[in-house]
C-alpha cells in the first residue's frame, strides 16, 4: 500500500499515524500578508528511532502540468552532528518575516502554494515529512472573477 507525501510517495502500513504535526500561529485562516511575521511550532509524535537531523523550511512551489518551480524563503537545520540538541518531546519553534512575493495563486494552469515543511532524518536513514500550507497575500479567487 502506498501513500502520497510531499516528496513523492511512501510505502506505509495501515496503522501508521501522522508523526509530525506543524501548527501555525495566527488567525486560524492561515492567511498572511507580505511583510508579516509567520510563526509556528512543530511536534514529533511517536518517533522511536533516534533523530539525527531536523530541517524546517518555509517555501513556495508551483503546481501545474509543466515543470515545477520551488523557492525556499527560510531554512533552518538542526543536526546532532553539529552539536544541536534535538528533543523529540519538546515542540520546536520557528519564526520568519514573509516576503513581498510571490503571492499565493490558485489558477487553473498554474498554482503557487506556500507551506512550512518539517523534515526529520532518522538514524535508520528514514525520513519523515510534515507540512502546513498557508496563503501569502489575498489575490482573488479565479472563480470569483
Amino acid at each position: 500500500m502506498y501513500r502520497k507525501n510531499e516528496i513523492g510517495f511512501e510505502s506505509i502500513n495501515a496503522s501508521e499515524k501522522e508523526r509530525i504535526v506543524v501548527r501555525l500561529d495566527g488567525r486560524g485562516a492561515r492567511l498572511y500578508y507580505p511583510g508579516e511575521t509567520l510563526a509556528g511550532s512543530y511536534y514529533l509524535n511517536e518517533i522511536r528511532q533516534p533523530i539525527e537531523t531536523t530541517e524546517i523550511s518555509v517555501l513556495w512551489q508551483t503546481e501545474g502540468k509543466g515543470n515545477e518551480d520551488v523557492g525556499v524563503h527560510a531554512f533552518w537545520r538542526l543536526s546532532v552532528h553539529d552539536g544541536d540538541w534535538i528533543d523529540p518531546v519538546q515542540p520546536g519553534r520557528f519564526s520568519v518575516v514573509l516576503p513581498q512575493c510571490p503571492l499565493s495563486y490558485d489558477g487553473a494552469i498554474v498554482k503557487i502554494r506556500w507551506f512550512v515543511r518539517v523534515r526529520v532524518f532518522l538514524a535508520n536513514d528514514a525520513q519523515l515529512v510534515g507540512e502546513a500550507p498557508f496563503r501569502l497575500g489575498a489575490l482573488p479567487d479565479p472563480r470569483t472573477l
Binding site: 502506498y2 513523492g8 510517495f9 492561515r30 501545474g64 496563503r135 479567487d141
Partner: peptide, 26 residues
C-alpha cells in the same frame, strides 16, 4: 472566510507534482 480559503489546500491530484516519474510508484 470565503470558499477559496476552505479549499486552498486542495491540489490538483494530476499535477506534475504528483504524476511526474518517480512521484508515483510503478
Amino acid at each position: 472566510m470565503n470558499e477559496s480559503f476552505a479549499n486552498f489546500h486542495q491540489s490538483n491530484p494530476f499535477s506534475t507534482r504528483y504524476t511526474a516519474p518517480g512521484k508515483t510508484p510503478f
